[in-house]
């Protein structure tokens, strides 16, 4: 099969100055089999239409900027080759379930607010001020201990999993796959002392029990993080804590 000369890219556009109606706009872009979808968007921006608006930065699937819906599926535009999208047309929309700022740019503030809410940071052991200011040596952590959390630490915060999650679409205050995976990442780290502080968020209505086990989050993750497994793990922990709390009142801090 000979390569096509061009490929048609259709983008769902929206601008806050004319909020009434989003519109579809088509662009015919030169086709190169090993060009990425992001490069096609850059060609549009540079040469055809400077108003087309999208985020991008690293172009190697590590910064998490360029997520959008590609033919109905959440993807990183830098991570798809035109060869895999030919002959087209390719339909692009902003990531599902998020408010749109403009064109393919979504408002990610809700996710950013959820990170502190789930305690998505390591809480080191309490140390004397002097020791904390000048730690003498790294603590030890075996490869087996790392394996407990390492997969979840690969999350690049690209938000594809939120677009894939039907529960987040229905109920935006659900903490969601990435935030809950990052909660699990820190809970499972042998160096962490912050688990008690994360329990309330985990056990709340908006926490792990809100997940309906669809598993689309894991399917769309470009980094092989398994948020569904992370959430399940925390459901187990949540249930265990619940039973212990019933049996041993006063245990909970």
């Amino acid at each position: 099969m000979t390569d096509p000369e061009t490929i048609l890219i259709e983008v769902l556009r929206w601008h806050p100055d004319t909020p009434e109606a989003p519109w579809w706009q088509s662009y015919e872009v030169p086709y190169r089999a090993d060009a990425t979808l992001l490069e096609a968007l850059q060609t549009i921006k540079d040469d055809l239409d400077g108003t087309l608006t999208f985020r991008w930065s690293c172009r190697m699937a590590i910064c998490g900027s360029c997520g959008c819906m590609v033919n109905g599926r959440p993807e990183l535009s830098c991570h798809l080759l035109l060869r895999d999208l030919a002959p087209g047309p390719v339909r692009l929309e902003p990531l599902a379930h998020f408010p749109v700022i403009r064109d393919l740019v979504i408002d990610q503030q809700d996710f950013l607010d959820k990170l502190p809410a789930v305690g998505a940071y390591l809480v080191p052991a309490e140390e004397t001020e002097a020791a904390a200011a000048a730690p003498a040596a790294p603590s030890r952590q075996t490869p087996a201990q790392m394996a407990d959390y390492y997969q979840y630490a690969q999350c690049i915060n690209c938000l594809l999993c939120y677009s894939a999650c039907p529960q987040y679409g229905l109920k935006p205050d659900f903490l969601g796959p990435a935030a809950l995976a990052l909660m699990a990442r820190h809970d499972a780290d042998s160096r962490d002392h912050g688990q008690a502080g994360r329990r309330a968020a985990r056990d709340a209505d908006t926490g792990v029990w809100d997940c309906t086990l669809v598993g689309h989050c894991t399917e769309v993750c470009p980094q092989g993080v398994d948020p569904a497994r992370a959430i399940n793990r925390n459901k187990t922990a949540s249930a265990r804590d619940y039973v212990f709390d019933l049996l041993l009142p006063g245990r909970r801090r």
Binding site: R55, S57, C58, I62, C63, G64, L112, N157
Partner: peptide
């Protein structure tokens, strides 16, 4: 950019 998008990431 949101800090975790910065080029240190690469």
């Amino acid at each position: 950019v949101v800090p975790m998008r910065s080029h240190t990431v690469a």
